[in-house]
């Protein structure tokens, strides 16, 4: 019974993963020179590659900004649309819309927002007499601009998880707290937040993975530029692997990326899990 699933998993997940690790110790095969074992050479060239370090740094900033922002925003939106109010069905849908859109489409929408001279931000800024700003073309704002897009895209998705969890909490808990005189903040801190902990862990793990996995909007909006200011690890990996065709080096970057992600996920599960009530 397990065989079909097992075959697919091995063929498309386990074998490629193992193959990647092996490849990372081999040189890139060329038509006139087959792949040979090179030991840690690929990893050594990674350490010497300044663009790798820049991409890593960019990615850490990107993760540090998107994760708390998108999760915090998701929680705030979920708390808001969970309450009784008119038009909350519409609001929930509106918040969820960015999730439904493909990342390529999202990137194109935001490309228009950011466009110099006639983009939306420029036009709004012009009304208030703000100076013109090339958001994506300026090294100092490009990464932040990319980050905003990712937050916009992710928050609605995470909101759905929070909303589902909030709906699962019995309304009589809120009433019991109201009888005792607990204010909103006290109730949130002592009851809602602990009860939402499992959801928060799940969302955090996803947010971390997404922060290192999202590359579509970089491809569409900046191609890593200007001057590698928005190059994230995965984009750098794509460039090394498929533009410069250095497959061995690309495999080494992949291994590092996966290792880092696995570590973060495990730490989250084992550290935060202890604090969660299921």
């Amino acid at each position: 019974m397990l065989l079909p699933a097992l075959v697919l998993l091995v063929a498309f997940t386990h074998y490629p993963a193992v193959a990647t690790i092996i490849d990372s110790f081999m040189s890139t095969p060329k038509p006139n020179r087959p792949s040979v074992f090179v030991g840690l050479d690929n990893y050594a060239s990674m350490i010497e590659d300044p663009i790798f370090w820049q991409a890593l740094r960019n990615n850490l900033w990107f993760a540090l900004a998107t994760i708390p922002l998108s999760v915090g925003l998701a929680l705030a939106m979920a708390l808001w649309v969970n309450g009784p109010m008119t038009g909350r069905g519409f609001l929930r849908m509106a918040y969820f819309t960015p999730t439904v859109l493909p990342m390529i489409a999202v990137a194109n929408i935001w490309l228009f927002f950011y466009t110099p001279t006639y983009g939306l931000l420029e036009q709004i800024g012009g009304v208030f007499g703000l100076p013109s700003q090339n958001w994506l073309g300026d090294k100092s704002t490009a990464l932040a601009s990319i980050t905003v897009v990712a937050v916009w895209k992710e928050a609605g998705f995470f909101m759905i998880f929070y909303l589902a969890a909030l709906q699962g909490i019995s309304p009589s808990l809120r009433e019991a707290a109201a009888i005792e005189g607990a204010g909103r903040w006290f109730f949130f801190r002592r009851v809602l937040w602990p009860l939402l902990m499992p959801t928060t862990i799940f969302v955090l793990v996803n947010a971390v993975i997404n922060a290192f996995r999202m590359v579509d909007h970089v491809v569409v909006m900046t191609r890593g530029g200007p001057d590698n200011a928005t190059s994230l690890l995965l984009y750098h990996l794509y460039e090394v692997g498929f533009k410069y065709w250095d497959q061995g080096y690309a495999a080494a970057i992949t291994v590092v990326l996966l290792g880092a992600l696995a570590t973060v996920a495990l730490v989250q599960f084992f550290v935060l899990d202890k604090k969660a009530h299921y």
Partner: peptide
Amino acid sequence: LAMVFQNYALFPH
């Protein structure tokens, strides 16, 4: 006043 709820409304955590 105090109240006891039908489903007890105990905080599970």
